[in-house]
Design a protein around this nucleic acid. Structure first.
Lengths: 173, 173
DNA sequence: GTTCATGTGTTACTACATAACAAATCTGGT
DNA sequence: ACCAGATTTGTTATGTAGTAACACATGAAC
């Protein structure tokens, strides 16, 4: 669609799409990623990952907990947070610090620099992987003698579809 | 000290320094910034700003509350959060999302792109203003049709002084 | 099949943040 | 000085996010 698409790890859910395919694709990649690293994708962890992939919106831990609680009698905060910690450690989900929420990762195999675009209109989150940008951050920090371990870039703004077809909340005065 | 120093809005508190001057300087700038924008720097807000500037480490809201509670009988969470909201709106403090903590801003008058270096060893936070980097982020987002409103860049790593004189927690085995 | 590591259940708690309304204080106009 | 409206602060209560600690269960490895 444009020249930078190869850097997009996770798209905005613009327009109608078969979200079931998003989910099943993500689950398949998750199986592979876990198998490759010898980690166990248990039923619980699998289910939590599915719930995080429930939409293209970031998902709150306690929302996951609420749904999980309907499905199994025993579900407490640690149940969810432990699963999320695991999924993060394998690179299957990311935590968005500015939202206290989680999103599924579209490309768990690739490096994770943590670049996110957050639409303030529809709430959807896209993930980028722009190595040049990451490199730019690294150099800027290293000029000050700072050794970078992890970069978090969270950009708020309005996504394309919300710009072209903005949500109207009521008649303008 | 190096060619990029003009981009440093807030330094790591490396080595001994007269922190009283940091604070008094910040308070003077705060008075100016508020006067310029017609906002009121009340005694309460002033005191909260001083407490945030208490060190070069990020400060938690409830730590501010604890100190404030010793000084005045009436101090509840809203007391602190309202003051912090005000100070943020004037650009006098920043919130570090990944830490749930606050730091004073070294240059309230200048644009605030929100670029932070967080040392995982000593906990100190530096603030940068690298317009080229901000521009790079903006362009990367705009290629996807995304209109940037606010950029948050929080980089974890090890600062220069912690690299050169690392904190030793015990004898190495 | 016993052992050890890993995963999950359970209870309790700590930390972070805001809603809603009441009281006090400041500001500008007369 | 006085009043009216706006802003700031006090107060109570509640909502939201995340973790500690320990018990129990399950899996893999020998």
């Amino acid at each position: 669609m444009n020249t930078a698409d190869h850097t997009v790890l996770r798209r905005f859910a613009n327009g109608v799409h078969d979200h079931g395919r998003c989910v099943s694709g993500a689950m398949a990649k998750a199986e592979l990623a876990c198998a490759a690293s010898g980690r166990r994708l248990t039923p619980l962890r699998r289910r939590v990952l599915e719930l995080v992939w429930g939409s293209h919106l970031p998902v709150k831990a306690y929302d996951v907990l609420a749904i999980l609680g309907q499905e199994r009698a025993q579900a407490a905060p640690p149940t969810v947070y432990r699963a999320l910690d695991f999924l993060q450690s394998v690179g299957l989900v990311h935590r968005i610090a500015s939202l206290n929420a989680f999103v599924g990762c579209g490309e768990p195999q690739r490096g994770h620099v943590g670049q996110f675009l957050i639409c303030t209109q529809c709430g959807a989150v896209a993930e980028l992987a722009d190595p040049a940008l990451a490199q730019r951050v690294r150099r800027s920090a290293e000029r000050l003698g700072f050794a970078v371990q992890r970069e978090t870039i969270e950009v708020e703004g309005v996504c394309r579809s919300c710009r072209t077809s903005p949500v109207v909340l009521g008649p303008s005065p």
